[in-house]
Simulated scan of single mutants.
Amino acid sequence: MEALSDEQLKKVVEELETGMNCYLHRQIGEVIAFPDPDQFPDTDDWQQEMDEIETRPDDYLEITSMSSRESFQIMERFISEVDSPAFRNRLLYALDQPKPFRRFKQLIDESSEYRQGWFAFRESQTIEWLREQLALED
């Protein structure tokens, strides 16, 4: 299987984050994405892609999203890079409370200083995770 470029990996990450199902053609490296029919009732525009996967499932590798535990670990790694002890403590506290993902996101969204850094960090970490997952399939 051919390695995906960084741009292709970014596209896959974006697709997964919006609830799309993603499949990688094992031979040519083409990525097919379409909405999960269980979550989105109107998938007529993607019928051709869905039929392709259904007809030739052995030609494709399903690319799944990372688990919530893996996402949590990315948040923990980001916190270790925050230079403000006060903000770092607020983020750590958020992760230790019920609904840690929502609390973490709320704090990040309120902080213009760290917001863009979080998005860049999460993207790079997710791309690296995805690269590792695909390497395991080779």
Rank of each mutant, 00 (worst) to 15 (best):
D58Y: 12
P100T: 08
E137H: 12
L134M: 09
A86D: 10
R56T: 05
I63T: 06
K99Y: 09
D6T: 13
M75F: 14
S112T: 13
F72T: 02
T55H: 09
H25T: 05
Q73W: 14
E110N: 10
R103N: 11
A33K: 09
E15F: 10
L95M: 15
Q27Y: 10
F78P: 03
R77V: 00
L61M: 05
L9A: 05
Q27H: 13
I108P: 00
S80L: 08
E54Y: 14
D51E: 15
A94V: 09
L61G: 01
P98Y: 12
S124E: 14
R88T: 02
R131P: 02
M50S: 07
R103Y: 04
Q39A: 11
G29V: 06
S111T: 11
R56D: 11
E30Y: 11
T43H: 06
A86K: 14
D42R: 04
A3M: 05
R56H: 15
L24Y: 08
Q47N: 04
A33C: 07
P37Q: 07
W129M: 01
I28P: 00
L92A: 03
V31A: 03
F87K: 03
F121K: 01
S68L: 06
S68F: 11
I108F: 10
I32D: 05
I32W: 13
R90K: 09
Q47E: 03
D38R: 14
I127F: 03
A94N: 08
E2S: 02
A33Q: 00
R26N: 09
S84V: 03
I32K: 13
Q106V: 10
L95G: 04
A86F: 11
E113C: 03
D38L: 15
E132F: 14
E49F: 14
Q97E: 12
I79P: 01
M66A: 02
A33D: 00
D6L: 05
Q133I: 02
R131S: 01
E81S: 10
D36N: 12
W129A: 01
E17I: 01
F40Q: 10
P57V: 04
Q106N: 11
E17G: 02
L91V: 04
E137C: 08
P98C: 00
F101G: 01
